[in-house]
Amino acid sequence: MTQHLYVDVHIVQTVPPANLNRDDQGNPKEALYGGVRRSRVSSQAWKRATRQHFDNQAPESDRATRTRRLTNELTTRIGRTTGLDREAAAPIATALLAQLGLSQGKKAGDTAYLLFYGNAQLDAVAALVTDSATDLAVLEEKALTEAVKELPVAEAFQDGHPVGVALFGRMVADIPKLNVDAAVQVAHALSTHETQLEFDYFTAVDDKNERGDTGAGMIGTIGFNSATLYRYATVGFTQLTDNLGGDSDAALDALDQFIDSFALSVPTGYQNSFAHRTRPSVVAIVVRCDQPVNLVSAFEEPIASEAGILAGSARRLAQEHLTATQVWGDTPLYTAASHTFTTREPSAKDTAEVLAQAFGEPVAFAELRTALRSRIVNALEKQA
């Protein structure tokens, strides 16, 4: 593949009072941008929500896991496939993973860091000893290590990546051969306007207060804010294809899963207290061949509330895209948007019109994804 393709995803989404992603004080994360305090949701929080969303729709074998307890997980798999009990399977798992040279954590059996792997990849490691497990189980440690040292354990983690690993990559600083370059970059979500931290003072009543004591059984506070967020992510389609062994069809499927899950997922912090799940009001897609472009500069000057903030944020995003393409002479391969504004409503007409100028006439979210796939397929065919 000679030409790089970048798929930029721009989202404007309003969230009610919530604490999606808390800091070390338990309050919503914030950032100073454009000289004012903004609500912020870290990229890590939204990447996890995205990964959980598409994993929940995939078979167990196609999911990815991030854990320190790799030895424990492999022990479980060996026991399941061979019938060995945990006491017999654990030394085999330890000997197999010793080949990788993973730094060990403070707790026995734990690695020093979280390792991100595909469930099918760990199943493949367990399968390496399916036929010999009974014989391996009776060996002493040194003999066991010698018996498994030629098995292709590292190779099992180097291909067959699930969507999560192919998209978000894997970093193991002391074992470069296990690294997978991420195909996705996710920006910190940032409010398009200034926000104020607020506190919910709550009390809980003791249902068994048979003595008639006055006062609450429990009191506390939860920090929260409400915000219209600009969210941005970019997918390097070329890198994604490489991570999936050159399979462009698999990369197209992974791209579609990412866009669906990135748009529809929400971090779950304090969700039972705030019921904060909303859908985006704008999802815009821009396919580029030069470089990814984050349009957060649209909101360096914070949006001021007139009749709300959402419509002004959508217009500002569209105008920034138009300005950027005109000034730099950009010619995106494809632009499209799904949004909730319509020219039939006088209050939304101006917003709908500027969005149409920037991204074309609005389409349903499913159609947006279908058309994106078709455009990328056409681009790949031309390159071939």
Rank of each mutant, 00 (worst) to 15 (best):
305 S>V: 15
239 Q>S: 09
272 N>V: 11
283 V>F: 03
246 G>V: 07
348 A>C: 02
297 S>I: 07
360 G>V: 06
344 R>H: 13
247 D>G: 04
317 L>A: 08
236 G>C: 05
270 Y>E: 08
365 F>Q: 06
356 A>F: 09
301 E>A: 09
348 A>P: 03
304 A>E: 07
330 D>A: 12
315 R>H: 05
350 D>E: 10
305 S>I: 13
256 D>H: 10
271 Q>H: 11
255 L>M: 13
341 F>S: 04
272 N>F: 10
367 E>P: 09
250 A>G: 01
261 S>Q: 04
233 A>C: 08
314 A>G: 05
358 A>K: 05
313 S>G: 02
265 S>L: 05
259 I>A: 00
334 Y>M: 04
280 P>L: 00
334 Y>I: 05
240 L>H: 06
240 L>S: 08
278 T>M: 11
289 C>M: 15
231 R>T: 10
353 E>Q: 14
307 A>H: 15
360 G>F: 03
309 I>C: 00
352 A>C: 03
354 V>Y: 01
367 E>R: 15
295 L>E: 01
360 G>T: 02
314 A>Y: 01
286 V>T: 13
326 Q>E: 13
283 V>A: 09
337 A>T: 08
370 T>N: 11
306 E>C: 14
256 D>L: 11
291 Q>D: 12
238 T>S: 06
279 R>D: 08
351 T>P: 01
348 A>R: 02
284 A>C: 08
332 P>I: 14
264 L>C: 11
235 V>A: 05
322 L>I: 13
352 A>K: 03
284 A>Y: 00
329 G>M: 10
259 I>N: 00
230 Y>F: 12
276 H>D: 02
252 L>D: 06
250 A>W: 01
307 A>K: 14
304 A>V: 06
318 A>L: 09
261 S>G: 12
246 G>L: 07
250 A>F: 01
295 L>C: 04
282 V>L: 03
242 D>Q: 12
315 R>A: 07
259 I>G: 00
313 S>F: 00
342 T>L: 11
272 N>T: 13
339 H>G: 01
312 G>Y: 00
253 D>T: 12
236 G>Q: 06
299 F>N: 02
320 E>M: 15
269 G>M: 02
303 I>N: 03
274 F>T: 12
283 V>I: 15
351 T>F: 01
351 T>D: 01
255 L>F: 08
295 L>Y: 01
276 H>W: 00
313 S>A: 10
341 F>I: 05
258 F>E: 02
360 G>S: 05
247 D>A: 03
313 S>W: 00
309 I>Q: 00
364 A>S: 14
242 D>S: 11
354 V>W: 02
361 E>A: 15
238 T>C: 03
264 L>F: 08
333 L>T: 11
282 V>N: 02
368 L>H: 03
252 L>W: 11
324 A>C: 14
365 F>P: 14
232 Y>A: 02
289 C>Y: 09
276 H>V: 02
280 P>Y: 02
285 I>H: 13
298 A>R: 01
